[in-house]
Amino acid sequence: MLQKVTVNKKLVKELDFWSIIVVIALVVFGSLNIYSATHMKSGTYYLKAQLIWLVVGLLLICVILLFDYSLIKNYANIIYWFGIFLLILNDTLFKVTVNGASSWMKIGPIQLQPSEFARLGMIIMIAKQLDDMEGNINNIRNFVKLTIYALIPMVLIVIQPDMGMTMIYFFSVLGMYFISGLNLKIIGGGMAGLVGLVAIIWNSPLMEQYWKTRLTSFLNPESDELGSGNQLISSLIGIGSSGFWGKGFLKGTQVGGGFVPEDHTDFIFSVVGEEWGIVGAAFLVILYFILLYRFVKISRESKDIFGSVLCIGIVASMLFSILQNIGMTIGIMPITGITLPFMSYGGSSMMTNFIGLGLILSVGMRRKKINF
Rank of each mutant, 00 (worst) to 15 (best):
M1I: 10
T6L: 13
K13C: 04
D16A: 03
F17P: 00
W18E: 11
A25W: 06
F29V: 06
G30Q: 09
I34H: 06
A37R: 11
H39C: 10
T44M: 10
L47Y: 14
Q50P: 04
V56G: 05
L58F: 03
I61N: 02
D68K: 04
S70P: 00
S70M: 11
S70G: 02
K73W: 03
N77K: 15
N77T: 14
I79N: 06
G83L: 12
L86T: 14
L87P: 09
I88D: 04
I88P: 05
L89H: 07
T92E: 06
K95Q: 13
T97K: 15
S103I: 04
S103K: 03
W104M: 08
M105L: 15
M105P: 05
K106D: 01
G108D: 04
G108H: 03
Q111N: 06
Q113A: 10
S115F: 07
L120H: 05
I126M: 13
Q129Y: 13
G135D: 08
N142T: 08
K145L: 11
I148P: 03
V158Y: 13
P161L: 10
M167Q: 02
M167P: 01
I168R: 02
F170H: 09
F170R: 09
F171E: 06
S172E: 02
V173E: 04
L174Q: 02
L174A: 13
G175T: 08
F178C: 10
L182C: 14
I187N: 12
G189S: 10
G190V: 09
G190H: 11
A192I: 15
L194P: 08
V195P: 01
A199H: 00
I200V: 15
W202N: 02
N203M: 08
N203Q: 10
E208D: 11
L215A: 10
N220E: 13
S223D: 13
G227D: 12
G229Q: 06
L232I: 11
L232N: 07
G243C: 09
W245V: 13
F249P: 05
L250K: 11
T253A: 13
V260R: 10
D263T: 08
I268C: 09
I268E: 12
E274Y: 07
E274C: 09
A281W: 02
L284W: 06
I286L: 14
L287W: 07
I290E: 01
L291I: 01
L292S: 01
Y293C: 01
Y293G: 00
V296C: 06
S299V: 05
R300E: 12
S302D: 03
S302P: 00
C311E: 02
I312S: 00
I314R: 02
I314T: 03
L319A: 15
I326S: 12
M328S: 10
I330Q: 11
P334A: 04
T336Y: 04
G337S: 03
L340G: 06
L340K: 07
S344K: 09
G346N: 10
S348N: 05
F354W: 07
G358S: 00
I360A: 07
S362T: 01
M365F: 04
K369F: 13
N371H: 12
